[in-house]
Write a protein that binds this DNA or RNA. Structure first.
Lengths: 213, 213
DNA sequence: TTCACATTGCTAAATTTTTCACAATTAAAA
DNA sequence: TTTTAATTGTGAAAAATTTAGCAATGTGAA
């Protein structure tokens, strides 16, 4: 299902709604109100309703939204029906953390390969994900039709890795190194830097603290 | 230095500007143009100039911005002059990754303690950060005036950990678990979920792919 | 010294995102 | 059956964020 021009932020929240709903799933509770979802995610109920409106989902006026239906619909919108395969490049602490976070998280995304240069790691399997040498990256990506790459190598290596991934035909990249990358426009790039998050927390914690003093 | 009502997004970008500038720092290059910063971070030059305007920094009309001066000014705005101390709770792969990311990243933020329940980890030092048992958390946080907590425990534990941290007097929290938390308004909470990032990449990669097909 | 021109700084406009406000609706209670 | 009360859905307003457009300026070249 394709809905044209879904706002960036809405896409992000849809993923969060689904995650939160999957966590609250139970036999007794089949429906959820907008204000319940809102409370879980620290946003407003209107925003939830607006997002659901954008994806054309209607709730029941007195019972709220059908949890199972909603989860399914979000899947139809944000997941690719064929599924998408993911590779993690760099199997250090972060790479391993990502893989174990992912374990058991159903979803149409599956991490099916990891790459590293450390011989101790190569040809071993981590949480169900086999690790290969980086030299094999292009081949394995092409063979397995992997379309998404997660970069968790040391930042000095990041640009070269990114280039190789792009040449291997990757369609989306998630860069966890602090090194800003450059990719062609047909590759979607998302960068996340922990330091920035932490500095943001530090800044607003400080500000908050002054305000509540 | 305090500038009232600095936009949320600007704070985030200031941190990124600093990081990017620290990476380009060299003897030969003392100045940088707005379009150079912009290119590194995939944003527009106008946006860079606007942000710098908000913090009251003036560049040189033909040479651009003085890199050293700018780094220093950003520090004056987003850092706390006394510095802020940080604790990592949960020393699994993610906790270790965070600590090692942080190593050597100067800055007024310092990770000075880690907490876990695994006896093998307790009383050991990881990348310069000592690990204590979670039972000691409140004491150590108070003694060392730690104001920021990073939560990297399994998501089931997160709410309890958050509560303890809040009671210990923490001012800001960075939650890496997919479990949404609740904290009082005087605590700044930032949540980051890798799965959401990855799903976003997947969604826009798919969309991009259709567009460029 | 004068000129050319790339860049900054900034106002105003545009766009995106969030919130308000309230009519419509319907499940459950009376 | 009627009433009540809580919730949805949404147009319109507000707020936040980004971008356009351009005058002003200062550097280096002529």
């Amino acid at each position: 299902m394709i809905i044209k021009n879904l706002p960036h932020k809405t896409v992000e929240r849809l993923s969060q709604y689904r995650r939160a709903l999957l966590m609250t799933l139970s036999k007794e509770k089949t429906h959820v109100f907008s204000h319940e979802i809102a409370q879980m995610l620290h946003i407003t109920p209107v925003q939830v309703r607006r997002d659901l409106m954008l994806i054309g989902y209607s709730g029941n006026l007195r019972k709220g939204y059908d949890i199972k239906e909603l989860i399914e619909l979000i899947g139809k919108i944000i997941d690719s029906d064929k599924g998408q395969r993911v590779a993690v490049v760099g199997l250090g602490n972060l790479g391993k953390a990502i893989i174990s976070y992912f374990k058991g998280k159903r979803s149409k995304l599956s991490i099916i390969a990891a790459f590293d240069i450390n011989p101790d790691k190569i040809n071993r399997v981590y949480d169900g994900v086999p690790c290969y040498h980086i030299d094999q990256m292009t081949d394995i990506i092409k063979q397995n039709n992997i379309s998404i790459g997660i970069i968790s190598v040391p930042s000095t290596e990041a640009p070269e890795i990114a280039e190789t991934l792009v040449l291997s035909g990757i369609k989306g990249l998630l860069n966890f190194t602090p090194k800003p990358l450059n990719v062609p426009p047909y590759v979607y790039l998302e960068e996340y830097d922990m330091i920035t998050s932490l500095e943001k927390v530090a800044f607003f914690a400080k500000k908050n603290d002054e305000r509540f003093k």
